[in-house]
Amino acid sequence: MEKRTGTERVKRGMAEMQKGGVIMDVINAEQAKIAEEAGAVAVMALERVPSDIRAAGGVARMADPTIVEEVRDAVSIPVMAKARIGHIVEARLLEALGVDYIDESEVLTPADEVFHLNKSDYTVPFVCGAKDLGEATRRIGEGASMLRTKGEPGTGNIVEAVRHQRLIQAQVRKVISMSDDELMTEAKNLGAPFHVLQDIRETGRLPVVNFAAGGIATPADAALMMHLGSDGVFVGSGIFKSDNPEKFGRAIVEATTHYDDFSLIAELSKDLGVAMKGIEISTLEAKDRMQDRGW
C-alpha cells in the first residue's frame, strides 16, 4: 500500500472541500474562533487585514509565526497563511509550520518581481490571485491548486473582483468553444500554458477551484460573486472591520450558501450595523493598486 503525499489530486482536492464556503482573514486566536463559530470553512492567519496593510504602508511581509501557530492551535478548520510573491523561504517556513494552504499573495509586498513560486515543488497546496485567464493558467502551470480573483484587497469595493471574475469566466467560455487551430494563438495572446488551455477545453471548466476575493464587504457582495460563478469567497477586511463581526460573519456564510435565495439575503442583511468604509478605486494611485503586483 504505497502512500503518496502532495499529489495534484490531494492538493486540488483540499480546495474542492472548501467549495460553497467562506474563508475569513483573522489576526489572532480569538478572531479565529469567532470565524469558526460563524461557519467559516477555513481561516487566513495574518498580522494585519488588508485594509490595515493599506493604511500602514511600508513593506508587508509574512505574519509572525507566533500568530500562525496561535491561530492553528485555536481551531479545527484548515488554516491558511500568506507568503510574499516569489518568497521561497517564507513559503517553506509556512509549510514547516504545518499550515494547510499557502496564499502566494499580492496583498503582501512582492519579494520577486519576475518569478512566482514554483508551487509544484511543495507538499502544501497554494492558492493564487488572478485578474484574467492568462494569469490564472500561468499560476496553474506553476502548480497552484486553487485560484481566487485578485479584486482590490482592503477597499471594501467589489468592482474589481466582479471585473476579474467576469473576465475569467468569459475567457473560459471562449476557450471551450475554440477549434484546434485557434487554441495555440489564444495561448500566445493570453500568455497561457497550452496544456492548461487544452485541459480547460476538454473538461469545460478550470481544472482548479476558483474563489472570489478582494473587496467583498457585505452578504450581498458575497452572493453576487457566487452568482457570477465563484466556487466560494474569501473575506478579508470585511468581517472584523464591521461593527458586529459575529453577526456579520454568519450573514456572509449564509448568503454564500443560499446566494439565490433573495428574500433570505434581504432578511440577513438587516441591522448588520455599519460595514467597513470603502474606497473608490479611481482614487487609488498606481502604487497602491495591489492587483497590479505579480504578472
Binding site: E2, R4, R9, M14, V99, D100
Partner: peptide, 8 residues
C-alpha cells in the same frame, strides 16, 4: 494536517 494528506 494537509501536508500529511495522501492517496493510496
Amino acid at each position: 494536517r494537509q501536508r500529511e494528506s495522501f492517496e493510496a
